[in-house]
Amino acid sequence: MATVDERSRRWLDRQSVPSLEWLRLVLGLVVPTILVVVWHLLVVTGVFSTHQLPEPLTVATTLYGMAATGELWGHVFITLQRVALGVLFGVTVGIVFGTATGLFSLVSDLFDPLFQSMKNIPSLAWVPLFLLWFGIGEGAKVALIALGAFFPVYLNLSTGIRNVDDELREVVEVYDVGWPTALRNVVFPAALPSLLVGIRGGVGLAWMFVVAAELIAASQGIGFLLSDGRTLSRPDIIIGSILLFAFFGNLSDLGVKAIQRRVVYW
């Protein structure tokens, strides 16, 4: 009896796979939708006053208005640019140091303790120093974001390279595979999944750091909108900015995830 049940259940599962995927996507939207409705009701019934929490529709209208006048795009563009540049630099430096420390234990002994302790410094703590060093221009912000993106890439790649399967290392040894070939065909592909995990984490942290940078020292950007909304007592702008961060943060994560799936094809 049990086996028949088992089999029919598996059969059912298999049959319903495509629709199940859709159902799960829709299910994921249920709670957020309810929250928006509850939010709307709480404001309309006066539980929250509108100067603290505007209606969802007000937020949407504000965003739409700013988009229509073109004001929004400058902020969005500059933030995206900072994140992109920061990620670019952070990932590049992360790859360089991750590779070097992963391959050579001497380099690892020299740099790893430093990086391991630096990664625990909160992002905001760097802001004053970076302002002092790089001024309030773009340099300080990009450098800060690069710093944030650096650590996950460095840490993941370094351990990824160091932890290449011993069994594969023995294959390399037994067949006298040359150093360059071993790196290209064995070590780097083996570390590629770790690198992409690192980049995903790095992009995530880049968004955290861009907020830190823009909150404190910017005249443009989504983070600036955020602090500007507070100054102007405009909760609709604040919430709108948060939603923008949520949107672009998710978008970039999906992008990296898509790359991850393509690159790690095996």
Partner: peptide, 12 residues
């Protein structure tokens, strides 16, 4: 040359 107990192939 060695053939190990597991094939130990490069999956990629």
């Amino acid at each position: 040359g060695v053939v190990f107990q597991d094939p130990r192939l490069l999956p990629w």
